[in-house]
Every structure is written in structure tokens, then in C-alpha cells.
Design a protein around this nucleic acid. Structure first.
Length: 208
DNA sequence: TTATAGATTGCCT
DNA sequence: GGCAATCTATAAT
């Protein structure tokens, strides 16, 4: 899998967030750790547009918090929400133009035990590794997947996803998505009706 | 300076 | 199904 996979380029992210969100489905998020690698397949994303999108953090202009969204494409934007959780995004569109994609759910692939430990899940029972409901607790949800990958704003905000040196990368391993379902975004109150949420149809690891 | 809402989750009834 | 936890940015005083 890893040997044949290719790192996504800056050009991949230099497009409309809706196209990026759709294209990211089926790709693999990788975290290189000192003691190994964590990996999960992206099964759910949401597009956030820079202009005319009341729900986007970039809606009311550039600030210290959201500056990554206004920077060059393919960079890591992490924000802290509800006092408890981090959410992972990637910037889209050229430098100076805001836009991004929120990662909402992953299907765990590599480093499952490490991710479960980071989530505080019970890993002593081997049968848990075959329990779909248990596996879903690892990374089905934006706050959950950040905890599993140990992603924080202090450590990861502003990193470059497209650098071969980066410990956070997104790769294409050749996986083909059969069908995509598009619906309204989740958990927001502004501009909630826009169909900007993308999921792999039928995949059991989507957040809802 | 104080108040409030938020791209969430897990525990309670 | 309801709600508390708990930090940040932004709006209101």
C-alpha cells in the first residue's frame, strides 16, 4: 500500500474547496510518529468557502487564528472547539484567497492500537479489533480523529501537508471510491442548508 | 471588560 | 433524547 502511494501535491489543493473535498475521499491521511506510522482512509469531508459562506471561519476576514486559510494551498489548519476538541482542515485556493476542507471521519488502517490508546479506549480485548462499533469510536468524528492522531493546534497548525519532510501527509494509494453521497454540513447553524458535506456512500466509518 | 455562541463528544436520565 | 464540559473569538457593554 505505502510503497505504491503518491504524495498529494500543492496543485491538488489549489482548487475550489468543493472539488478538493470530493477528491479527498478515499485518500489516506498519514501521521509519521517516532515509533511508527498512523494511517486512516478519508471517508467524510466538508467544504468551507472563503466568500459568501457564513459558516466558514474565514467569513469575516483574516485573523491570527484563521490566517492559514488565507495562505497557500495544502497547509494544515487546526482549531480548538467547545473547549475540548481539535478539528483538522487543509487550506485550498491560492495564497491570498480563503478556503478549506474539514476532515470529519477516517477509517483506521495502520496503528490501530496506538490510535485506540490515544483515544482512551480499552485495547486489552482482542475481539475489539473485529468489533465495528468499537472501531468506529477511534476516528469517526472530527474531534475523535484528531485525538487518535494526536493533532493539536500548538503542534500542527501551519504545517505543509505536501512536503515530503512533513510528519502529516495525504497520499493516494490507488483506492477507488465507488459512489459519493453529498448532503448538508453537520453541526453548524449558519448556512446549514448548503450541500457541502461529502461521504463515501455506504462506508460504515462516516460520523453519522 | 463582560457575555455568548460555537465546524463536538460523552455521560446522564 | 438532553445537557454539561471548557477554551476561543467575536460581539456587546
Amino acid at each position: 500500500m505505502l510503497a505504491a502511494s503518491t504524495l498529494l501535491s500543492s496543485a491538488f489543493f489549489n482548487r475550489d474547496p468543493r472539488r478538493v473535498a470530493r477528491s479527498l475521499l478515499g485518500k489516506v491521511l498519514i501521521r509519521k510518529m517516532p515509533r511508527g506510522v498512523l494511517a486512516g482512509r478519508i471517508v467524510e469531508t466538508e467544504a468551507y468557502l472563503g466568500e459568501g459562506d457564513g459558516a466558514a471561519h474565514s467569513a469575516s476576514g483574516k485573523t491570527a487564528r484563521n490566517s492559514v486559510l488565507f495562505g497557500p494551498p495544502g497547509f494544515v489548519y487546526v482549531y480548538f472547539i467547545y473547549g475540548n476538541y481539535y478539528c483538522l482542515n487543509v487550506s485550498c485556493l491560492p495564497d491570498g484567497v480563503a478556503g478549506g476542507v474539514l476532515f470529519r471521519a477516517l477509517e483506521p488502517l495502520t496503528g490501530i492500537k496506538e490510535m485506540a490508546a490515544a483515544r482512551g479506549l480499552e485495547i486489552s480485548k482482542p475481539e475489539n479489533l473485529k468489533d465495528l462499533q468499537w472501531l468506529r469510536k477511534i476516528s469517526s468524528g472530527p474531534g475523535r480523529m484528531c485525538e487518535a492522531f494526536d493533532i493539536t493546534r500548538a503542534r500542527d497548525n501551519g504545517k505543509n501537508f505536501t512536503s515530503s519532510q512533513s510528519d502529516l501527509q495525504i497520499v493516494d494509494d490507488g483506492y477507488r471510491v465507488r459512489r459519493v453521497a453529498i448532503g448538508p454540513r453537520i453541526g453548524i447553524t449558519k448556512s446549514a442548508a448548503e450541500p457541502l458535506r461529502y461521504v463515501i456512500a455506504g462506508n460504515p466509518f462516516v460520523s453519522l
